[in-house]
Design a protein around this nucleic acid. Sequence first.
DNA 1: CATGAATGAGGCTTCATTCAT
DNA 2: GATGAATGAAGCCTCATTCAT
Lengths: 196, 196, 196, 196
Amino acid sequence: MSVKLTKGDITRQRLLGAAEEIFGRKGYYNATVVEITMRAEVAQGTFYVYFQSKLDIYCDLVRQLTHEVRREIQKRVTGLENRLDIEREGFRAFFDYVHENRNLYRIIREAEFVENELFIDHYRTIAKGYIAGLQKAMAKKQIRALDPETVAYCLMGMGEFMGMRWVLWENKTPPAKGFEAMMDFIYYGIAPAKGD
Amino acid sequence: MSVKLTKGDITRQRLLGAAEEIFGRKGYYNATVVEITMRAEVAQGTFYVYFQSKLDIYCDLVRQLTHEVRREIQKRVTGLENRLDIEREGFRAFFDYVHENRNLYRIIREAEFVENELFIDHYRTIAKGYIAGLQKAMAKKQIRALDPETVAYCLMGMGEFMGMRWVLWENKTPPAKGFEAMMDFIYYGIAPAKGD
Amino acid sequence: MSVKLTKGDITRQRLLGAAEEIFGRKGYYNATVVEITMRAEVAQGTFYVYFQSKLDIYCDLVRQLTHEVRREIQKRVTGLENRLDIEREGFRAFFDYVHENRNLYRIIREAEFVENELFIDHYRTIAKGYIAGLQKAMAKKQIRALDPETVAYCLMGMGEFMGMRWVLWENKTPPAKGFEAMMDFIYYGIAPAKGD
Amino acid sequence: MSVKLTKGDITRQRLLGAAEEIFGRKGYYNATVVEITMRAEVAQGTFYVYFQSKLDIYCDLVRQLTHEVRREIQKRVTGLENRLDIEREGFRAFFDYVHENRNLYRIIREAEFVENELFIDHYRTIAKGYIAGLQKAMAKKQIRALDPETVAYCLMGMGEFMGMRWVLWENKTPPAKGFEAMMDFIYYGIAPAKGD
DNA sequence: CATGAATGAGGCTTCATTCAT
DNA sequence: GATGAATGAAGCCTCATTCAT
């Protein structure tokens, strides 16, 4: 039951794709509507057939991208039972995805300075799910019981820092070693082996 | 033996102060030079007597602010011997300072999208000092031996996340509880007491 | 088979026309883009749809004008066989044209102080053609053999001086008398009649 | 009976000297008062102690420079009796002087687009003297009788053209050959020797 | 739907000039 | 006389947005 894409939908997608590339590369404020339309190979006026303003397409994009990130992580952890497996796979999914779509990550981060609400929503949503998962795992005694919010700060922050440094600064996927060892350690008290 | 401030130095300071307020509140791209000069109560042209461009004053400001943050933390941990004391006091200093100067923190964060180099420099410098401190403490067996870089990602990330949520979103100083418990836990394996 | 002018081409022409008038009357540096757009009866922004900068339109204009001057002279001397006829008609064409388009002449002269390359190009091109013509005529013994470059300096300089004084200072076409007599004299040794 | 230069006169001279360098190198409109004062090593305000405006110093300078050129030529031809000697030496003096002071020449030429009156005055004065000299020489039958004004256009124009090309474009003194041969030719009908 | 020419508000920056010391 | 900080008018240019076709 595939959805029929009208010509208009396609143009809209072209614009969103172009916007992702331009916003990601130059940042919201240094991107111009003209540039986006040029990349999408449509006329300037066409932009305003599909979006009310530059901010409008940006918000659309951020909503879509944050949704994708979360869905992507969700997809990868679906079916996994053990908390540690979920976390490991979740972080890996996150890093893989943003590495594949580096522009996306920059756009999401910049939302803080463009439309802060979107940014807050995204992180709150992520945190909520993350904390819920932790609580479930603690209830089942899969992992040690700790204050879930504190753990969330700690591990989500670690994820961001690694994403920032490895993905954005060095254009690489962060090594799994670090965060996996840290989780073993936090949840089970297993200190990393010497030489790790 | 106070340093004599010339008339010019004062004007320069006024401009920097005004810039901090405006950049912090509206963001780099939504701030205007006119607004800064109005707040500083000088004429538009005066701005260009002291700074070459809007970007110039921004970079000056970021350099000055990042320096201040680091110095402030340094000042507070000077004299402390025990690693945990250092960390606790360091984080508290950080939170206190950015809470007192919320604009400062937003300006530093936005540097990622204005002049990325400055942003990277700042975090690298912080991380370097942090890691060195960890290594020293581990060598002295003050804390458990772990991969310092991973610990840095974890705890600095936690600091950022708490700074973001508590300071920027809620305009409060983050509760000491969370990060202090986490450190006890990471460094000594002391799980937080129930009810924490 | 007239070429279809798009709406855009017309606006562009309006701007160039307005620019010619303003640059010619006030000089490059005292002309403003606003003034040009007002005279062209378009909005300020429209200017930058067609030209990248004030200097850009100026260079376009100089290139176009110098080309026109040369073409105009060329047109008038085409078909003439005798060197003296060519020269006479050439100078007359030059004077007539710049008198009809005094602004044009001022613009070309000012190029020396705006974008010197254009100015040099123009004079080199003129001189090259002029010298080539002299050489051909000398080879055919139509005129006395003299160093063509020296003759070129002499007569082109005379043309400029007369253009400057009669056209620019007094807004008249220079009298043919002077330069025709001088050519007779130089090429054939015919001294002007008494009373000339 | 040397004139005592006060401190003020010296400052004034420094400013004029600096202005000559800057105006000559960058042109009137691209020169700034600040730059002139910096080069003169005085404060910005000092400029307005000696000159009423940027245009004021420019006019002063042009008047002084045109005067110098004429005096320099005058000096070199004083005492010469024969017209041809006078002309040869006069042109050589002109070329030598502007070559030594290229900036000066550019400043004078640019006057056409800054304060046209000064420019006109200069050329009229030169032409008047030149024509008077020609008439005297013709009366004494030192040179062939021709319309002096036409000769003036011809030879002054030649001088300008050579000055422009050799001095300004190529930074050399024009070769004497050309204009001396042309004068022999015009005044005595002596065609240049083959190979000249 | 699509176009692309046109708009104009508003930003950054320059610089001749003034003025209190 | 000399200073140099301060001024503010005015210029160039950008770009999100509109609109007639």
